[in-house]
């Protein structure tokens, strides 16, 4: 018998995972947080996710065609969807539709494909998109809703849809009536006006640890994130270092001056710290790859976030902290190369 066989390079085993699978698992892990978000703040966020995903896929397809890359192969990697969902989770639930459009344009076209597409982007695309819309449209980006339980009016699904598509508040309402400052914003303005944090926390927008509702969303993201860590989709170093540094630094500030610095748990459970720690700073492409580098990267994001919250112009700083650390990632990787066997 003389048979011919296909040849190929070792290893001769089917691969155990794909990029698409990694990205899909990230999406599954976001579910608990998104469900909590919807529960506390209404269905607006789901519309934002749909909108952002739609625009992301549109821009991704266009760019892949322009760059003459295999469209089906790269749409199948789900990375654009992850970018879109992470971006949408940073938006106020009733932000007008063009926010998602502009944000996704900058995320997918500018931050991702102009840098070379999947795997080549220096900056986290979702955070680039978010930073652009946050700086460009401060008005639209601060129209946050209070949790449903303390909202003065009930905003239904159709009201939300109308508001997003028209850019106007739901019929018969004004933005002032339905929006409320976020807990972090409240802390910021009250500290600036001379109030202590304990006084500010009397407001209804606060819950046990962080903001009302927000703390449960953070729990949801943490649950998903821990599942991802257990599945080894993300490394343990970045979330641990980031949350750890927030707690250590937050505790130091709190012990020095509890009047003007929130407690470390308050820090962790409000804003985007948990989402950032498990889902944004863990983006492998724009982050560090060596284990020690990831510890430094995570800690850097945590420290920068707290510095921006304390001294910066924005109430939360995860996005900017991540972008700054993205710039530092190659340098960190260079200096944290692991010891080679026998060296």
């Amino acid at each position: 018998m003389n048979r011919k066989f296909t040849t190929g390079a070792a290893p001769h085993l089917p691969p155990i995972s794909t990029v698409g699978e990694v990205m899909r698992q990230v999406l599954y892990a976001l579910c608990p947080g998104v469900i909590a978000y919807t529960w506390f703040f209404g269905t607006g966020i789901l519309l934002q996710i749909l909108l952002a995903t739609g625009f992301a896929l549109l821009f991704e397809t266009l760019m892949l065609k322009l760059r003459q890359q295999p469209v089906a192969l790269f749409l199948n990697d789900w990375s654009a969807v992850v970018t879109a969902v992470l971006f949408a989770l940073c938006l106020p639930p009733l932000a007008p539709w063009w926010i998602a459009c502009v944000g996704m344009f900058f995320a997918i076209v500018m931050a991702k494909h102009l840098y070379g597409g999947l795997g080549h982007n220096v900056f986290n695309p979702a955070m680039v998109g978010y930073a652009v819309v946050l700086i460009s449209f401060p008005q639209a980006m601060t129209q946050w809703l209070p949790p449903i339980s303390i909202a003065p009016t009930d905003i239904g699904f159709l009201d939300g849809l109308w508001a997003i598509l028209s850019g106007q508040p739901p019929a018969g309402m004004t933005w002032d009536a339905i929006t409320r400052a976020t807990p972090l914003d409240t802390i910021r303005t009250s500290v600036a006006s001379g109030q202590t944090i304990a006084e500010a926390r009397q407001l209804q927008t606060f819950g046990d640890l962080g903001g009302r509702g927000w703390e449960w969303i953070a729990n949801g993201f943490a649950a998903g994130g821990i599942w991802l860590m257990w599945r080894r989709v993300i490394s343990w170093q970045v979330p641990t270092a980031m949350i750890g540094s927030v707690i250590v630094l937050g505790l130091a500030g709190y012990l020095l001056d509890p009047g003007s610095n929130p407690s470390p748990l308050e820090h962790v459970f409000s804003g985007a710290i948990v989402l950032g720690a498990f889902f944004i700073a863990t983006d492998p492409v724009s982050g560090c790859t060596s284990p020690r580098g990831r510890l430094i990267f995570g800690a850097g994001v945590g420290i920068l976030t707290l510095m921006i919250r304390r001294w910066g112009a924005y109430p939360d700083g995860v996005a900017f902290a991540v972008l700054v650390m993205n710039m530092a990632a190659p340098l960190i990787d260079r200096y944290t190369r692991p010891r080679i066997y026998g060296g």
């Binding site: 794909t18 999947l118 492409v285 066997y341």
Partner: peptide, 23 residues
């Protein structure tokens, strides 16, 4: 073998470094 798996760009996930016996 499933040789039809297409190669994608590296996403720098670091799994390779985690399993490398030569560090």
């Amino acid at each position: 073998i499933q040789s039809d798996q297409a190669e994608m760009p590296c996403i720098r996930c670091g799994e390779c470094a985690r399993v490398c016996p030569a560090l």
